[in-house]
Protein backbone atom coordinates (compact mmCIF):
# COMPACT_ATOMS: atom_id res chain seq x y z
CA UNK A 1 0.00 0.00 0.00
CA UNK A 2 2.74 2.44 0.95
CA UNK A 3 4.51 1.80 -2.36
CA UNK A 4 1.27 2.48 -4.23
CA UNK A 5 0.67 5.70 -2.28
CA UNK A 6 4.18 6.92 -3.04
CA UNK A 7 3.77 6.23 -6.76
CA UNK A 8 0.41 7.98 -6.80
CA UNK A 9 1.87 10.87 -4.86
CA UNK A 10 4.44 11.43 -7.60
CA UNK A 11 1.79 11.17 -10.30
CA UNK A 12 -0.61 13.59 -8.63
CA UNK A 13 2.19 16.06 -7.88
CA UNK A 14 3.19 16.00 -11.55
CA UNK A 15 -0.38 16.54 -12.73
CA UNK A 16 -0.82 19.39 -10.26
CA UNK A 17 2.40 21.11 -11.38
CA UNK A 18 1.49 20.62 -15.02
CA UNK A 19 -1.87 22.25 -14.40
CA UNK A 20 -0.13 25.29 -12.97
CA UNK A 21 2.42 25.42 -15.77
CA UNK A 22 -0.44 25.27 -18.28
CA UNK A 23 -1.99 28.36 -16.71
CA UNK A 24 -4.36 27.16 -13.97
CA UNK A 25 -4.34 29.38 -10.90
CA UNK A 26 -3.75 27.54 -7.67
CA UNK A 27 -2.20 28.27 -4.30
CA UNK A 28 0.99 26.32 -4.70
CA UNK A 29 2.47 26.45 -1.20
CA UNK A 30 -0.61 25.46 0.80
CA UNK A 31 -1.48 22.76 -1.70
CA UNK A 32 1.91 21.08 -1.55
CA UNK A 33 1.92 21.16 2.24
CA UNK A 34 -1.15 18.91 2.40
CA UNK A 35 -0.51 16.79 -0.69
CA UNK A 36 1.03 13.85 1.16
CA UNK A 37 -1.90 13.67 3.55
CA UNK A 38 -4.51 13.94 0.80
CA UNK A 39 -2.87 11.24 -1.30
CA UNK A 40 -2.43 8.91 1.67
CA UNK A 41 -6.00 9.40 2.88
CA UNK A 42 -7.58 8.92 -0.52
CA UNK A 43 -5.36 6.28 -2.12
CA UNK A 44 -4.96 4.53 1.22
CA UNK A 45 -8.74 4.04 1.38
CA UNK A 46 -9.23 6.17 4.49
CA UNK A 47 -11.39 8.83 2.86
CA UNK A 48 -13.76 7.27 0.38
CA UNK A 49 -13.77 8.42 -3.17
CA UNK A 50 -16.22 6.97 -5.64
CA UNK A 51 -15.87 7.32 -9.40
CA UNK A 52 -19.47 8.45 -9.86
CA UNK A 53 -20.47 9.78 -6.45
CA UNK A 54 -17.29 11.72 -5.68
CA UNK A 55 -15.85 12.32 -2.22
CA UNK A 56 -18.27 11.90 0.66
CA UNK A 57 -17.98 12.77 4.35
CA UNK A 58 -14.91 14.89 3.73
CA UNK A 59 -14.71 18.68 3.66
CA UNK A 60 -11.64 20.44 2.35
CA UNK A 61 -11.92 23.46 4.58
CA UNK A 62 -8.70 25.01 3.34
CA UNK A 63 -10.33 25.26 -0.04
CA UNK A 64 -7.36 27.05 -1.59
CA UNK A 65 -5.72 23.59 -1.78
CA UNK A 66 -8.35 22.38 -4.24
CA UNK A 67 -5.74 21.94 -6.99
CA UNK A 68 -4.72 18.70 -5.32
CA UNK A 69 -8.29 17.43 -5.51
CA UNK A 70 -8.47 18.41 -9.17
CA UNK A 71 -5.22 16.55 -9.82
CA UNK A 72 -6.57 13.47 -8.02
CA UNK A 73 -9.74 13.52 -10.12
CA UNK A 74 -7.61 13.68 -13.25
CA UNK A 75 -5.25 10.93 -12.08
CA UNK A 76 -8.20 8.68 -11.25
CA UNK A 77 -9.73 9.55 -14.63
CA UNK A 78 -12.89 10.68 -12.89
CA UNK A 79 -12.72 13.59 -15.26
CA UNK A 80 -10.81 13.68 -18.54
CA UNK A 81 -8.25 16.38 -19.12
CA UNK A 82 -10.20 17.69 -22.13
CA UNK A 83 -13.40 17.96 -20.15
CA UNK A 84 -11.52 19.63 -17.29
CA UNK A 85 -9.91 22.11 -19.67
CA UNK A 86 -13.23 22.77 -21.34
CA UNK A 87 -15.02 23.34 -18.04
CA UNK A 88 -12.32 25.61 -16.64
CA UNK A 89 -12.34 27.69 -19.82
CA UNK A 90 -16.11 28.07 -19.47
CA UNK A 91 -15.75 29.04 -15.81
CA UNK A 92 -17.67 25.99 -14.60
CA UNK A 93 -14.67 24.68 -12.64
CA UNK A 94 -12.50 27.24 -10.90
CA UNK A 95 -11.12 28.44 -7.61
CA UNK A 96 -13.68 26.78 -5.34
CA UNK A 97 -15.00 23.29 -4.91
CA UNK A 98 -18.76 23.38 -5.19
CA UNK A 99 -21.56 20.88 -4.99
CA UNK A 100 -23.01 21.85 -8.36
CA UNK A 101 -20.24 20.94 -10.82
CA UNK A 102 -19.86 18.03 -11.03
CA UNK A 103 -23.20 17.64 -9.28
CA UNK A 104 -22.85 16.49 -5.68
CA UNK A 105 -19.30 15.30 -6.30
CA UNK A 106 -18.04 17.15 -3.25
CA UNK A 107 -19.63 17.29 0.16
CA UNK A 108 -19.41 21.06 0.59
CA UNK A 109 -18.81 24.42 -1.09
CA UNK A 110 -15.31 25.45 -0.09
CA UNK A 111 -13.81 28.91 0.18
CA UNK A 112 -14.81 30.46 3.47
CA UNK A 113 -12.64 29.45 6.41
CA UNK A 114 -13.72 28.26 9.82
CA UNK A 115 -17.01 26.63 8.89
CA UNK A 116 -16.20 23.00 8.31
CA UNK A 117 -15.86 21.65 11.85
CA UNK A 118 -19.37 22.83 12.74
CA UNK A 119 -20.75 21.49 9.49
CA UNK A 120 -19.06 18.15 10.23
CA UNK A 121 -21.08 18.00 13.47
CA UNK A 122 -24.28 18.18 11.46
CA UNK A 123 -23.03 15.53 9.03
CA UNK A 124 -21.74 13.31 11.85
CA UNK A 125 -25.06 13.36 13.72
CA UNK A 126 -26.71 11.63 10.77
CA UNK A 127 -24.25 8.76 10.36
CA UNK A 128 -22.02 6.33 12.20
CA UNK A 129 -19.32 6.71 9.57
CA UNK A 130 -16.29 8.89 10.22
CA UNK A 131 -16.55 12.43 8.93
CA UNK A 132 -13.31 14.23 7.97
CA UNK A 133 -12.16 17.76 7.49
CA UNK A 134 -8.80 19.26 6.60
CA UNK A 135 -8.23 22.74 7.96
CA UNK A 136 -5.31 25.15 7.87
CA UNK A 137 -3.29 26.26 10.87
CA UNK A 138 -4.08 29.96 10.34
CA UNK A 139 -7.75 29.04 10.07
CA UNK A 140 -7.78 27.82 13.64
CA UNK A 141 -8.12 31.43 14.81
CA UNK A 142 -11.73 31.42 13.60
CA UNK A 143 -14.03 31.46 16.61
CA UNK A 144 -16.53 29.18 14.94
CA UNK A 145 -13.94 26.39 15.00
CA UNK A 146 -13.66 26.68 18.76
CA UNK A 147 -17.42 26.78 19.17
CA UNK A 148 -17.50 23.49 17.27
CA UNK A 149 -14.53 21.89 19.08
CA UNK A 150 -16.13 22.46 22.46
CA UNK A 151 -19.49 21.24 21.19
CA UNK A 152 -17.89 17.97 20.01
CA UNK A 153 -16.25 17.58 23.38
CA UNK A 154 -19.36 18.43 25.41
CA UNK A 155 -21.71 16.25 23.38
CA UNK A 156 -19.18 13.43 23.14
CA UNK A 157 -19.47 13.14 19.36
CA UNK A 158 -17.28 10.25 18.35
CA UNK A 159 -17.01 10.25 14.59
CA UNK A 160 -15.34 13.50 13.56
CA UNK A 161 -11.70 13.61 12.51
CA UNK A 162 -10.07 17.00 12.18
CA UNK A 163 -6.77 17.25 10.38
CA UNK A 164 -4.73 20.44 10.77
CA UNK A 165 -2.16 21.24 8.11
CA UNK A 166 0.40 23.04 10.28
CA UNK A 167 2.69 24.61 7.73
CA UNK A 168 3.36 27.62 9.96
CA UNK A 169 2.61 30.25 7.32
CA UNK A 170 -0.67 32.06 6.81
CA UNK A 171 -1.54 34.08 3.71
CA UNK A 172 0.67 36.96 4.81
CA UNK A 173 2.86 35.99 7.73
CA UNK A 174 4.78 33.31 9.59
CA UNK A 175 2.84 31.72 12.41
CA UNK A 176 4.85 31.51 15.60
CA UNK A 177 3.95 30.80 19.20
CA UNK A 178 0.29 30.41 18.44
CA UNK A 179 -1.38 29.63 21.77
CA UNK A 180 -4.38 27.90 20.29
CA UNK A 181 -2.13 25.43 18.46
CA UNK A 182 -0.16 24.46 21.51
CA UNK A 183 -0.40 20.74 22.36
CA UNK A 184 -1.28 21.71 25.93
CA UNK A 185 -4.46 23.35 24.70
CA UNK A 186 -5.32 20.86 21.98
CA UNK A 187 -4.72 17.77 24.10
CA UNK A 188 -7.27 19.01 26.62
CA UNK A 189 -10.10 19.07 24.12
CA UNK A 190 -11.00 15.43 24.68
CA UNK A 191 -10.01 14.24 21.23
CA UNK A 192 -7.68 11.40 20.39
CA UNK A 193 -4.60 13.49 19.66
CA UNK A 194 -1.86 12.81 17.11
CA UNK A 195 0.98 15.02 16.00
CA UNK A 196 3.09 13.73 13.12
CA UNK A 197 5.38 14.65 10.26
CA UNK A 198 2.87 15.51 7.53
CA UNK A 199 5.23 14.42 4.77
CA UNK A 200 6.10 10.98 6.08
CA UNK A 201 3.69 8.79 4.15
CA UNK A 202 4.42 5.65 6.22
CA UNK A 203 3.62 7.51 9.41
CA UNK A 204 0.55 9.26 8.02
CA UNK A 205 -0.85 5.95 6.79
CA UNK A 206 -0.31 4.14 10.07
CA UNK A 207 -1.89 6.98 12.07
CA UNK A 208 -4.88 7.25 9.74
CA UNK A 209 -5.46 3.51 10.04
CA UNK A 210 -5.42 3.90 13.83
CA UNK A 211 -7.79 6.87 13.63
CA UNK A 212 -10.20 4.84 11.56
CA UNK A 213 -10.51 2.35 14.41
CA UNK A 214 -10.54 4.78 17.32
CA UNK A 215 -13.94 5.11 18.97
CA UNK A 216 -13.84 8.83 19.53
CA UNK A 217 -13.16 11.93 17.49
CA UNK A 218 -9.57 12.63 16.56
CA UNK A 219 -7.40 15.68 16.10
CA UNK A 220 -4.40 15.12 13.85
CA UNK A 221 -1.71 17.75 13.60
CA UNK A 222 0.41 17.45 10.49
CA UNK A 223 3.72 19.25 10.74
CA UNK A 224 4.26 20.30 7.16
CA UNK A 225 6.29 22.57 4.94
CA UNK A 226 4.59 25.14 2.80
CA UNK A 227 5.64 24.53 -0.80
CA UNK A 228 7.07 21.10 0.09
CA UNK A 229 9.16 19.62 -2.69
CA UNK A 230 10.08 22.82 -4.49
CA UNK A 231 13.17 23.99 -2.67
CA UNK A 232 13.05 27.56 -4.03
CA UNK A 233 9.66 28.25 -2.52
CA UNK A 234 9.66 26.10 0.62
CA UNK A 235 8.71 28.13 3.71
CA UNK A 236 8.76 31.32 1.66
CA UNK A 237 5.91 33.71 2.49
CA UNK A 238 6.20 35.29 -0.94
CA UNK A 239 4.73 32.18 -2.50
CA UNK A 240 1.54 32.05 -0.47
CA UNK A 241 -0.26 33.55 -3.44
CA UNK A 242 2.45 34.24 -5.97
CA UNK A 243 3.57 31.54 -8.37
CA UNK A 244 7.19 30.94 -9.37
CA UNK A 245 8.18 30.96 -13.03
CA UNK A 246 7.02 28.17 -15.32
CA UNK A 247 10.65 27.32 -16.01
CA UNK A 248 11.30 26.74 -12.34
CA UNK A 249 8.20 24.56 -11.93
CA UNK A 250 9.05 22.71 -15.12
CA UNK A 251 12.27 21.53 -13.50
CA UNK A 252 10.22 19.66 -10.91
CA UNK A 253 7.92 17.87 -13.32
CA UNK A 254 9.13 14.30 -13.81
Amino acid sequence: MIKKIKIKSEKVRNIFLKLIVSGHKYHLGGSLSCLDFMITAIYGGIINIHKKKGIKNFILSKGHALGIIHAILLEKKMITYNSFKNQTSKGVIGGQLDIFNPKNFFEWNSGSLGHSVGVCIGLALTTKQKVWTLIGDAEIDEGSIWEALFFIKDKKIKNINIVIDKNNISASKKITNKGNLSPKVLKNLGFEYFEIDGHNVDLIYSVLKKVKKVKRSSLIILNTIKGKGIKEIENNIKFSHQLPSRELLGKYIK
Binding site: E107, W108, G114, H115, V117, G118, V119, C120, I121, G122, L123, A124, L125, T126, T127, G143, S144, E147, A148, F151
Partner: peptide, 17 residues
Protein backbone atom coordinates in the same frame (compact mmCIF):
# COMPACT_ATOMS: atom_id res chain seq x y z
CA UNK B 1 -22.84 30.24 19.56
CA UNK B 2 -24.87 31.13 16.51
CA UNK B 3 -22.18 30.40 13.95
CA UNK B 4 -21.86 26.83 15.14
CA UNK B 5 -25.64 26.55 15.32
CA UNK B 6 -26.03 27.44 11.66
CA UNK B 7 -23.14 25.20 10.64
CA UNK B 8 -24.61 22.18 12.46
CA UNK B 9 -28.03 22.87 10.96
CA UNK B 10 -26.60 23.00 7.47
CA UNK B 11 -24.68 19.74 7.94
CA UNK B 12 -27.87 18.02 9.06
CA UNK B 13 -29.84 19.45 6.16
CA UNK B 14 -27.19 18.32 3.68
CA UNK B 15 -27.92 14.76 4.76
CA UNK B 16 -31.62 15.20 4.11
CA UNK B 17 -32.83 16.20 7.57
Amino acid sequence: CEQNLVNIASGLARKGK
